[in-house]
Structures are given as structure tokens and as C-alpha cells.
Nucleic acid binder design. Structure first.
Length: 855
RNA sequence: GCGAGAGUGGCGGAACUGGCAGACGCGCUGGACUUAGGAUCCAGUGGGCAACCGUAGGGGUUCGACUCCCCUCUCUCGCACCA
């Protein structure tokens, strides 16, 4: 054994060993309980970043821990390999996306291997491989059969920079989720997946996502956006037309003073006389600022009270929700209120706060009170609402809803925000959509036996708009499968989120096995622990929940939810550095608080998520090159609990490195004197120090185990290990019993350390004379009797303040504890002449003596 | 605006069902060893001279509150003209 810890040497040695022994290949083994541990697979962008390091370190600890607990563990990895960056690289640098992607995968795979992650590479998935994406196509055909895939023309989100369509979920604050450029609406003929068919199920399923973070579940519900209301028609006066509106507040129907149409409502174009103004309203459509509107010239009749009210076209009304038209009640809706103020429309109160009409604050008739400053949307009682006046408004919502249905004026409906998932992409690097357009037969699906429809390699990347597939004669020209006539292939490809919606199912079978083997899937699925970033709270996770249900309904799966437990890890953050002259600086461009380029003093900015643009990044290659994978993993697990943001600290990394060096030193110093590993005899003569160390060892097993089991709190688990190691490093064995205890502590510490820092644990395990691999070891168990303290330090409080500490054996009767506490001299002083009113004893912890306050 | 979460030493963070606030690490201070120390080891380290005071601020419940209840402030994240 070497005196100095050389992480590079140790890590490469064991990575080679693990791979040679095929330690992490997994087989379907029905005799054992399974555990499916999955981390979100990466897009092969070129290199891994610290976010990946953290994500995969977390997953690896869980996988290794569960293995040692005796589970049959599935821990796979793969590549989300279709996507725009590859195609953009092809346009910019002339490298084919296939080559670019595979080179990146090669590099990143080596990086993951270098991290010592326990993946079963026999199950590696690469989504851009025809063997993989043929199943995307197969699912598409099945969905087409079931009416779950369909084509329609509609306004869709268009990213001009990516030159493709985006699904609603992929538009973040009006911008493209990938490149951040503005998204515009464009009318296109597109393929959709009918996710809305499962909307109720996706929503109610949220209640069963017990193992998911609440905020993610909330985001899912929010996105699905269920609301109950009524739809009813307002006839247009002087015509035989009508406007259908949707409202969740039928209790305010008597307060409607105008009707608003969305700018792209079919009626808007027809009714708006002033086309110029209409254009202005359309310009403001969807913008968060000032509300714009134009009077149409028409009036609608409120069916509840026969009142004639003006019809406007308004920029704030959305065609994509409800019916694209609303009744406006300015008194009770802030948006309507603002609009009414701007266009000088009447405000009529129909709900007043309170339990009954005529309560305090409402004694004056609404008209005599000062004008409203803002809409009132709280609860209250109806006024000026015909026969419904006097009802509490939540009762009125029900009653009026019923009344509307009885009178045939409208119906109660449930609306959702969730729209169908637009999956067509006008780009090359994705799964070809397997349909053919025939002049005589129309849209014809590709025959199952002709799958996969292969993405042609031989295409030109010009970057001048339009998919390269449009220029590929060989791809484009095809015979119609129905009539045999000349036909044309679909050139749009699928959204890459299709690829990631089922990859976890593919992992259940090995690369060389049939893709969708039921037995494998039934054994491994669902995923027991899924780990990834919160940025997919809606996107990928919602799509996967949808796909799981589709796969269930075509008979591949027999459960509803793909991910039983979800851990969304926090971001990796670091302080930003800015030079007054050179802007953002990389940490290596700064020395002693000054810019290396110009020597000026730099400003330390706030701690933010690591990003290349702000240059507050640490390159995993450098980190591993300097400290090794074990230190890198250990620090990212120690610095914060996994679900919280982690602040990067170079000093903290050194602390982790020091810790590993300390254990190394302990083994090195004792390498000659270590006795054989044997179970400890029950009665072994040993010094007090040794029995303390033994107790600490059992306490540490307990703490580490509980901390892992309790929400994967690795930071506290590691701190417990540090305590044990600190104690071991100052331990001096004096007799055989002591040495046996020391040996036991050392072996235990190494096993407990092994999920976090696998290489160094493995090396020291061997150096201490044990047979590799340490990962063949069972997770240790603690003995509650040994872990228990022999004497307990009882805290004695007088009136809630700590005044003394007394030693007592555990299990001492309360009466005796009280006596000892009261007779403690220091305590006597604080009691003085006061009467003891009461003594509270908390078993094994403290005594609180409560006195009267005089004296 | 709505929804979720968080506020604890100089810093990252501990404290499971109310029971010694500050585990562990970083930093800092002193010492040892050294030609040297940005290596290593040892000791100390919330504030205050002290009584005491301290978990964003204010109230409350309790023998006892970082923890439970009410109010206020600040920050982060998500959604956002969704009728």
C-alpha cells in the first residue's frame, strides 16, 4: 500500500476491475425483490456539467446502497440523442448530426465511466438509433389507430430561431424553452397527440403521486388547469347569430355589462367594423400590458335579464381557453374592471360582502356608495340578481347553474388548460413520422412491417429554412401502400420529448433482447426512484405519464404511473465574478480578488446557477483530474441535501479530499497491526475507549442508514461518518480486544463509505486485507443494545434554563432522577428560597424544575 | 395576483414525533512539527466583561418553541389576462 492517496491511480484500477468483473450487469431475477433506480438521461451536448455530476452521484449512491441491501437493482443509462444542437452543428460546422452525436456520446460516456457510476451498460439506449426510434413510429401507428394521433390545422407556437413548432409546454414566458427567442403564432397543419383524452385521469392520478415533491405535483395540476363553469349563448341583437361564452361565475350574470371576444374569435373579423382598430387589438393580443379593445357595433342580449349589452373585441381574451368569448363583470373581475375603466363601461355590483344582504357595510344601496377602486372577487351575497338575490354566492353558483340547464339556456361544463400535444417538428434530426401522403388515398400510415422509416443520412444542411428532408428525393418519393401510386412521405419529424416518454420501459430489456419484453417490463417497472432536475416538472414528466397510459391501453404495461418516487435535485450554484473591464470572468481568471487580464479589482456577484454565459462554472474534467471522482462525488453529496440548491465551494471540495486522506492515513498507519476480520466475541476484554468506539460504530451504522432511508439525506450521513473517522484517528488500541474493535470499526466505516466514495472504499478494503469487492458486502446492521449509551447526561433546567448536567444510568426511575436533580448544588443555588411547583422529567433527556416566582 | 418553498454563527448547513440551538465541513485564532507552510497534527471558535442575549420581526399556546397557532416583513421558484 502506498503512503500517499493517489485518486487517479486508485480510481482507474477499480473502474477497470468492476468493468472486467461485470459487477453492475443486472438480470431479471424473479426470486429477488427489485429496485429500479433511474436518473434522467442526458442530451449528448458534448461534455457533462456539474448538474450531471450531482444528479448521477445521487443516483449512484441509491443504487449501490440498495444493492448492498440485497435488492436486485436496475440502474441504466442512455442518451437523449435527437435534438436541435446536433443539426445546428451540422449547419454551422458541416459535421453530420450522426457523427457529432456519436462523438459526444463517446466522450461523455468516458466521463461517466470516469465518475465510477454503477451503470449496467448492456442496457444503454440511444434514441437516434433506428432500433430505438422504430418504436416511436410503432407507438405513433398504434395511436393513429386509436384516434390518439391526428392531424389538424391550427395556430401553433413557432420559434423563428429554431425554425420549428413548439408544444405549449415548451413555451416559457412567451419564449422558446431551448433558445430563449420569442415565439410567434403561425398557422400550420400539424400532428397532435390527444393527451386531452387522458386529462381527467392525469389530474386524478396526481393524488396518488405520494412519492413526488409537492411542488411538482402542484405544477402538474396547475398545468392541467381544471375549472368548472357554464357555457351559454348570448344572442346577438338584430341578427340570428349568437355568442357562446364560458364563465366560472354564473352568480355574477346580472352584473355583466358587456361581452368580449378574443381577437382571433371567428366572429371578431365579421363584427368589428373598424378594421384598423381591430389590427391594433390583435397587436396587443397575448401581451401582458395594457388591455386594448374595440367596440364591434353589435349588442348581445343577456338571457338572464334580457338586457342589451355591447360586444367588444378585447386583447386580453384568449381564444385557446373556454369558448374564446366572455361575459364581462367589471364589479367582480379585475381584468374586466380595468377594461371597463378604460372604455368607460358601466360597473354594476351584484355581490356584496357578508353572510346576508343588509349586513354591516352594505346598508347603503350599492349605487350610493363611493365608486369601486377595484373589483371585488371575494365571497358574499347576491343583490340585484332577480329571484337569486339574497343567496350566498357559492350557493348561487350551484342554483343558477341548475337553472340555466333547466331552462335550456346553456350547460355546465368542465374546462381544462391542457391542450393536445403538438408533436410535428419541421427539422431533420428526429424520428420520421411514419405516414405517406397519396394524391388519391390521402393520409396513409406506413405499414408496420415497413418500420422503421429510416432517417436518410445523405442530406444537405443548408440552414436556409425548411427541413433537409424536403430535398431528399430518395426519402420523399414513395409508392402509396394502398394504391401503389406515386406518393410523398411526411417530412416532419417527432418532438424529441416523444423519445424520452418511454425510454425507461426500453431499459427493462437488454440491448440484444427484444425491445418490449412483457416479462422484463412487468418485473422492473415502475421506476422506484427517479432523479432529475425540476425543469421537467411539467414537460417530460407529464408526457411520460401520458405515454404510460397509452402503453397501458395498447397492452404493453399494466399500471398507470411510471415513477413511484421522484427526487428533484437542486441546482448547482456558484458565486459570479465580474471585472469592470472584462465582464464575467471564469474562476481561473481571477487571483487574489483581481482580474488576471487587467489587474483590476473584481466584483463578487450573487450566487447563481452555474452557467456558461455567466462563467461561474466548474469543469468536471478539471475537478476529477485534480481531486478524483470520489472527492467530487463526496462534496456534491455533502454540501447540501439533494433537493436543495448546492453552493459550490473550492474550499469545501478540499475538505472532502482531506476527509478521504484521513481515512487513507488511518489504514496506512495500521496496515501491519490489523488483526483478521472476524465477528467480535460477545464478551471481549477491552478498554473503555474501545467500548466507546464500538458504541460509536453502531451509532454510526444507525445514523447513516436512517439518513439514507429518510429522504436520502446524504449530507448528514456523511457527517456521521466523519465523526466516526475522527474518533478512529485518535484511537490507540492497547490490547487484543481493542484491536478487534478497531478492525470492526474500520471495516464498517469502509462499507458505509462505499456508496459515496466507491473507489477509495474498495482500495482500502483490499489494503486492509479483505477480499474484493467491497460491493459484495451486506449493508451492516447495528445492535441497539451496543449503540445505547451506558450513562446518560441529563440536562437539569430550572424554569426552562439549563443550569446543570448530571450523569445517570438509563432507565433510572423518575423519582430518583428528580431527587438527583434537586440535590445538585448548582441547581440548589438557582432554586434558592423559591417553592418547587412541579418537576418535569423527559426520559433520557432532561429534567425541568419549575419554581414559584417569588423569593 | 395565484400556487409552492425558504429565512438559524463570518459561510455551507445540523437539530427525527416540541426537550442541551449551532452536529459535520469551511473559514478564522493560537500552538506543535518544520528551512518553509497555502502540508499535517493539537486546541479554541454564536454574541456579550458579566448577569444574560440569541433561530427574519411581532404576538400567542406550553414547565419548555428553530419546531405548533395568528399577524407582518424579506427572498427564491413555478404559473400567470385561464374568465
Amino acid at each position: 500500500m502506498e503512503e500517499r492517496y493517489d485518486p487517479q491511480k486508485v480510481e482507474l484500477k477499480w473502474q477497470e476491475y468492476w468493468s472486467r468483473k461485470r459487477l453492475y450487469t443486472t438480470d431479471t431475477d424473479a426470486s429477488r425483490e427489485k429496485f429500479y433506480c433511474l436518473e434522467m438521461f442526458p442530451y449528448p451536448s458534448g461534455k457533462i456539467h456539474m448538474g450531471h455530476v450531482r444528479n448521477y452521484a445521487i443516483g449512484d449512491v441509491i443504487a449501490r446502497y440498495k444493492r448492498m441491501r440485497g435488492y436486485s437493482v436496475l440502474h441504466p443509462m442512455g442518451w437523449d440523442a435527437f435534438g436541435l444542437p446536433a443539426e445546428n452543428a451540422a449547419i454551422k460546422q458541416g459535421v453530420h448530426p450522426t457523427q457529432w452525436t456519436h462523438e459526444n456520446i463517446g466522450y461523455m460516456k468516458e466521463q461517466l465511466r470516469r465518475m465510477g457510476l454503477s451503470y449496467d451498460w448492456d442496457r444503454e439506449v440511444t434514441t437516434c438509433a433506428p432500433e430505438y426510434y422504430r418504436w416511436n413510429q410503432w407507438f405513433f401507428l398504434k395511436m393513429l389507430e386509436k384516434g390518439l394521433a391526428y392531424k389538424k390545422s391550427s395556430f401553433v407556437n413557432w420559434c423563428g430561431s429554431c425554425m420549428t413548432v413548439l408544444a405549449n409546454e415548451q413555451v416559457i414566458e412567451g419564449k422558446c424553452w431551448r433558445c430563449d427567442s420569442a415565439v410567434v403564432q403561425k398557422e400550420l397543419d400539424q400532428w397532435f397527440f390527444r393527451i386531452t383524452r387522458y386529462v381527467e385521469e392525469l389530474l386524478s392520478g396526481c393524488e396518488r403521486l405520494r412519492g413526488w415533491p409537492e411542488n411538482v405535483v402542484a405544477m402538474q395540476k396547475n398545468w392541467i388547469g381544471r375549472s368548472e363553469g357554464v357555457e351559454m349563448d348570448f344572442p346577438l341583437e338584430g341578427t340570428d347569430g349568437k355568442v357562446r361564452i364560458f364563465t366560472t361565475r354564473p352568480d355574477t350574470l346580472w352584473g355583466a355589462t358587456f361581452v368580449c371576444l378574443a381577437p382571433d374569435h371567428p366572429l371578431s373579423e365579421r363584427v368589428a367594423a373598424d378594421k384598423e382598430k381591430l389590427a391594433a387589438v390583435r397587436a396587443a393580443y397575448g401581451e401582458a400590458g395594457e388591455k386594448e379593445g374595440v367596440f364591434s357595433g353589435f349588442y348581445a342580449v343577456n338571457p338572464m335579464n334580457g338586457e342589451k349589452i355591447p360586444v367588444y373585441v378585447a386583447s386580453f381574451v384568449l381564444m385557446g381557453y373556454g369558448t374564446g368569448a366572455i361575459m364581462s363583470v367589471p364589479a367582480h373581475d379585475q381584468r374586466d374592471f380595468e377594461f371597463a375603466k378604460k372604455y368607460d363601461l358601466p360597473v354594476r355590483e351584484v355581490i356584496v360582502p357578508g353572510e346576508k344582504s343588509g349586513e354591516a357595510g352594505t346598508s347603503a344601496a350599492p349605487g350610493q356608495r363611493p365608486p369601486m377602486q377595484e373589483a371585488y372577487d371575494g365571497p358574499g351575497v347576491l343583490v340585484n340578481s332577480g329571484r337569486f338575490s339574497g343567496l350566498k354566492n357559492d350557493d348561487a353558483i350551484r342554483e343558477i347553474g341548475k337553472y340555466i340547464e333547466e331552462k335550456g339556456l346553456g350547460k355546465r361544463v368542465i374546462n381544462f388548460k391542457l391542450r393536445d400535444w403538438g408533436i410535428s417538428r419541421q427539422r431533420y434530426w428526429g424520428t420520421p413520422i411514419p405516414v405517406i401522403y397519396c394524391g388519391t388515398c390521402g393520409i396513409v400510415p406506413v405499414d408496420e412491417k415497413d418500420l422503421p422509416v429510416i432517417l436518410p443520412e445523405d442530406v444537405k444542411f443548408t440552414g436556409r429554412g425548411g427541413s433537409p428532408l424536403l430535398d431528399s428525393e430518395a426519402f420523399l418519393k414513395v409508392k402509396c401502400p394502398k394504391c401503389g401510386g406515386e406518393a410523398r412521405r411526411e417530412t416532419d419529424t417527432m418532438d424529441t420529448f416523444v423519445d424520452s416518454s418511454w425510454y425507461f420501459v426500453r431499459y427493462c430489456s437488454k440491448k440484444d433482447e427484444e425491445a418490449l419484453q412483457r416479462g422484463n417490463i412487468a418485473y422492473w417497472m415502475p421506476v422506484d426512484q427517479y432523479i432529475g432536475g425540476v425543469e421537467h416538472a411539467v414537460l417530460h414528466l407529464l408526457y411520460s405519464r401520458f405515454f404510460t397510459r397509452v402503453l397501458r391501453d395498447i397492452g404493453i404495461l399494466d399500471f398507470d404511473e411510471p415513477f413511484t418516487n421522484l427526487l428533484t435535485q437542486g441546482m448547482v450554484c456558484m458565486e459570479t465574478l465580474k471585472c469592470p473591464e472584462h465582464g464575467w470572468l471564469f474562476p481561473e481568471e481571477v487571483k487574489d480578488g483581481a482580474c488576471l487580464l487587467c489587474g483590476k479589482e473584481i466584483a463578487r456577484g450573487r450566487v447563481e446557477k452555474m452557467s456558461k454565459s455567466r462563467k461561474n462554472v466548474v469543469d468536471p474534467d478539471h475537478l476529477i483530474g485534480r481531486y478524483g471522482a470520489d472527492t467530487s462525488r463526496l462534496f456534491s453529496l455533502f454540501a447540501a441535501p439533494p433537493e436543495k440548491d448546492l453552493e459550490w465551494s473550492d474550499k469545501g471540495v478540499e475538505g472532502a479530499y482531506r476527509f478521504l486522506n484521513r481515512i487513507w492515513g488511518i489504514v496506512f498507519r495500521n496496515r501491519e497491526a490489523l488483526p483478521r476480520s472476524e465477528p467480535l466475541p460477545s464478551s471481549l476484554p477491552m478498554t473503555d475507549e474501545a467500548s466507546r468506539l464500538l458504541r460509536k460504530t453502531h451509532q454510526t451504522i444507525k445514523r447513516v442508514t436512517n439518513d439514507i432511508e429518510r429522504e436520502y439525506h446524504f449530507n448528514t450521513a456523511i457527517s456521521a461518518l466523519m465523526e466516526l473517522v475522527n474518533e478512529m484517528s485518535s484511537f490507540q488500541p492497547l490490547q487484543d480486544g481493542d484491536r478487534a474493535v478497531f478492525r470492526k470499526s474500520l471495516d464498517t466505516a469502509l462499507v458505509l463509505l462505499s456508496p459515496f466514495a466507491p473507489h477509495v472504499a474498495e482500495e482500502l478494503w483490499e489494503a486492509a486485507g479483505n477480499e474484493p469487492s467491497i460491493f459484495g458486502q451486506k449493508w451492516p446492521e447495528w445492535d441497539e443494545g451496543i449503540a445505547r449509551e451506558e450513562v446518560i447526561e441529563l440536562v437539569v433546567q430550572v424554569n426552562g434554563k439549563v443550569r446543570a448536567k448530571v450523569m445517570a444510568p438509563p432507565g433510572l426511575p423518575d423519582e430518583e432522577i428528580k431527587e438527583r436533580a434537586v440535590s445538585e448544588p448548582k441547581v440548589r443555588g438557582f432554586i434558592g428560597q423559591k417553592d418547587i411547583r412541579k418537576i418535569v422529567v423527559v426520559k433520557g433527556r432532561l429534567v425541568n424544575i419549575v419554581t414559584s416566582n417569588e423569593g
